[in-house]
Write a protein that binds this DNA or RNA. Structure first.
Lengths: 147, 147
DNA sequence: CTGCCAGTTCAAGTGAACTTGAGGTCAAGG
DNA sequence: CCTTGACCTCAAGTTCACTTGAACTGGCAG
C-alpha cells in the first residue's frame, strides 16, 4: 500500500482534502508525486498530520509547526521550545482547572444569581487575573462531529 | 465613584478602548450615558468584563456569551450549559495533560529523532485520536505581556 | 475664546486557518 | 471513443475577534 491519494489521506486522517492542499501549500506536508494530476502521498503523511494535530492542540500556530520541520522534512523539534511549550501548557491547564471547578460549581450553585455566589465571584477574579496577567484561551473548532 | 469613562475601564480591566467599543456594539456591555460624546460606564461593567473573560477563557465565543445575558442585562446563565462546558473543559484538560507530558518527555528524550521514540509516538496517537474524535485546541492570544 | 487632545463614528483592514467557487484535466469505465 | 467524476489550480470568500485609519466633536486648560 505505497502511496495513497488525497481522498484516502482525508479519510484516514479526518483532515479535509482542501485542508491537505492548504497544508501542502504551507509546506506542512508534501505529496510524493502524482498520478495524472492527483497527488500521491506517502502513508507517513499520516504521522505527520498527527504531529501537526499535536502541535495545534498544544497551541502552536501552523507557522510555528512548519518551523519545527527541518528543511529536509524530518521533524527537528527544538527541545527547549518543547519544554517551554510544556510549561505554558501547564499554566493553561491550571487555569482551566480553576475554570472547570468554577463552572461546575456555578452549575449547581443555589444562589439565585451567579453574581451573588462567592465562589462564582472568586472564579471571576481568576478569569480577570488570567486575562490581565497573560490572557490565555481555549477555543474549540467549529467543524463537524457535534461533541 | 459612579460612572467611569472608557479610559478608566480600559485601565482597570486591561481591555482596550477599541475592544470595549466593539463589545458594546456586540451588546456584551452597555454604557450608561455620555458626557459629551464620551461613554460613561457603571463600575459594574468591570464584573461583566470579568465574566466575559471567564467565558472566553472557558471556550465560549462572544456570541455565546452574549446569549448568556438576559435581555435585561443581568447574567442569566444556563446551568446545564455551564455543566456541559465544564465537562468539555475537563476533556480538554485531560488531553492537554497528555500533551504536556508528551512535550515534556520529548524535550528530554534521548532518541535521536522524536519519531523513533515510543513515548512520542504514543503522544502522536493521542493527538490524532483527539483530532479525529472531537478536535479541540488551545490558542493563546498574541496581545501584550510577553508570556 | 480658542485650541488641544482624548474621545467619537464608520468603514475597512488584519491574521489565522480554512473553505468555496469557477473553470480545467485526466484515468477509468461503459 | 466518449463521458463522468474525482481531483486539479487559483482567487476570492468566510469567520472570529479585534485593530486601525480618517474625519470629526466637544469639555476643559489657559
Amino acid at each position: 500500500m505505497r502511496d495513497i491519494d488525497i481522498a484516502e489521506v482525508a479519510q484516514l486522517s479526518g483532515v479535509r482534502a482542501s485542508t491537505l492542499r492548504f497544508y501542502e501549500e504551507k509546506g506542512l506536508i508534501a505529496s510524493h508525486g502524482r498520478r495524472g494530476l492527483r497527488r500521491l502521498f506517502d502513508p507517513a503523511v499520516l504521522d505527520r498530520l498527527a504531529l501537526i494535530a499535536l502541535g495545534r492542540a498544544s497551541g502552536f500556530s501552523l507557522d510555528e509547526i512548519a518551523r519545527m520541520f527541518a528543511p529536509d522534512g524530518r521533524p527537528r523539534i527544538d527541545r527547549k521550545l518543547l519544554a517551554a511549550k510544556a510549561d505554558e501548557l501547564d499554566r493553561t491547564i491550571r487555569r482551566l482547572n480553576a475554570m472547570r471547578d468554577g463552572l461546575r460549581h456555578a452549575a449547581v450553585c443555589p444562589a439565585p444569581s451567579h453574581m451573588e455566589c462567592p465562589t462564582f465571584r472568586r472564579l471571576l477574579r481568576v478569569a480577570a487575573a488570567g486575562k490581565i496577567g497573560e490572557k490565555k484561551k481555549v477555543k474549540k473548532s467549529r467543524r463537524k462531529s457535534g461533541s
